[in-house]
């Protein structure tokens, strides 16, 4: 019944440090999510925390987030996601749009 928290850690090959202190993007509507990306000294790694009512898709989160980190090489950052049944396409889109918010 309770909300689930999932934790992930990624180590991008060519780390690019997150250029601002923090950015927030998105609304937790039905089938949607919000994200906060914050700069955080993690020795070139990026950590992600996902809070979601959905269970059983941990491996999909791992893959979707992994691809986002692959593409962006985002490093030394902490990503917090509040999810409400967002599909992988929406997750990818919101993460990209969050970077767009800071002109990345």
């Amino acid at each position: 019944m309770a909300l689930n928290q999932l934790h992930f850690e990624f180590a991008p090959a060519t780390p690019r440090a997150f250029p601002v202190a923090a950015v927030h993007y998105g609304v937790v509507g039905s089938g949607d999510m919000e994200v906060i990306i914050e700069a955080c000294a993690l020795a070139g790694k990026t950590q992600v925390t996902v809070t979601t009512p959905v269970t059983g898709f941990d491996h999909v989160w791992q893959l979707v987030l992994g691809r986002f980190i692959d593409e962006s090489q985002l490093a030394d950052a902490h990503i917090s996601i509040n999810d409400n049944n967002a599909t992988p396409v929406v997750v990818s889109l919101r993460l990209r749009q969050a970077l767009l918010e800071i002109g990345e």
Partner: peptide, 8 residues
């Protein structure tokens, strides 16, 4: 077609 529909 989207790869996932509502409710995954």
């Amino acid at each position: 077609q989207e790869t996932f529909q509502e409710k995954m």
